[in-house]
Design a protein around this nucleic acid. Structure first.
Ligand SMILES: [Mn+2]
Ligand SMILES: [Mn+2]
Ligand SMILES: [Zn+2]
Ligand SMILES: [Zn+2]
Lengths: 141, 141
DNA sequence: ATGCAAATGATAATCGTTCTTATTTGCATT
DNA sequence: AATGCAAATAAGAACGATTATCATTTGCAT
């Protein structure tokens, strides 16, 4: 299991549900998880946390900077560990797999555009929805 | 009021609620409207349509290509008339005003990135959330 | 004017998420 | 190690946006 210090240093007291959730993100196969994903995976591995707690903990982790929240299509929020970097996402329409990318040219053009319109960027989201061109979509879920 | 032909040519039978909704989009001050916006504006102008009908009609118009749907932060869908072009959005965090822009450099970089990763783009969304830099945010709601 | 498939509107149901509250837990202090 | 208490949890109710149900109405071809 995870070390309590990780949470303490984030200003959160080290509780069992929080450690379990953090652990899941560190060890999960998928980087991007919804509240429901987290809840079900914890149940599946025998750990039982309340769904409300999962929602609360995810929001707290987001505020503490441990997780980043994304709003892909489909309505539900998905979270991932905050690696400190910024990246955008390309979502495979066949299997839902999420690929990450970072393009400095895109980022700097955004700055140009926003500045030109008299805005100071606070945040942005770029989501590309696409089909995998490989013969068989390699990202089976 | 609007001409029934606009709907007929879109493969939709010309009904009163549909004409009212289409009319609202053609004449509304705001380009980007949520279902609730449409419902309330219709009620306010004396026209009474059921909320369920508004939702149904918006989805039908989207499928018919008359409207485009966007998912900004805040959960609810917003719609705008399909001008045939593609553009991205910058949302003012103070007042919620939505500004549109199109940057060919950004668009072509997206293609490059997606192709490089083995994807064929079907759709994308780029939302910039920003503060207006003018002394007083000019977009009062 | 008639008939009927299609559309509407009132309401119930659903989904993701947040709120409420009684109970439990982490942890600092004895 | 036992105590006390603020903070966190779990269960379920409540919520807001959206969709489904279904009896009634309407567009429109005959
Ligand atoms: Mn990511
Ligand atoms: Mn627009
Ligand atoms: Zn980016
Ligand atoms: Zn674009």
């Amino acid at each position: 299991m995870h070390q309590p210090e990780h949470l303490k240093s984030a200003g959160l007291k080290s509780t069992l549900p929080r450690l379990k959730v953090l652990d899941l993100f560190e060890n999960s196969k998928e980087r991007h998880l919804s509240a429901e994903d987290v809840y079900k995976q914890l149940l599946a591995s025998g750990e039982d946390v309340g769904l409300a707690t999962v929602y609360r903990v995810l929001t707290q982790f987001e505020q503490a900077g441990l997780l980043v929240r994304h709003h892909f299509e489909g309505g539900k929020s998905v979270f991932e560990l905050n690696k400190g970097d910024h990246h955008d996402h390309i979502v495979c329409l066949q299997c839902g797999h999420v690929e990450e990318f970072h393009d400095p040219a895109i980022e700097s053009r955004q700055q140009k555009v926003a500045t030109g319109l008299g805005f100071a960027i606070r945040d942005h989201s770029l989501h590309i929805y696409a089909d995998c061109t490989k013969k068989k979509c390699p990202h089976k879920r």
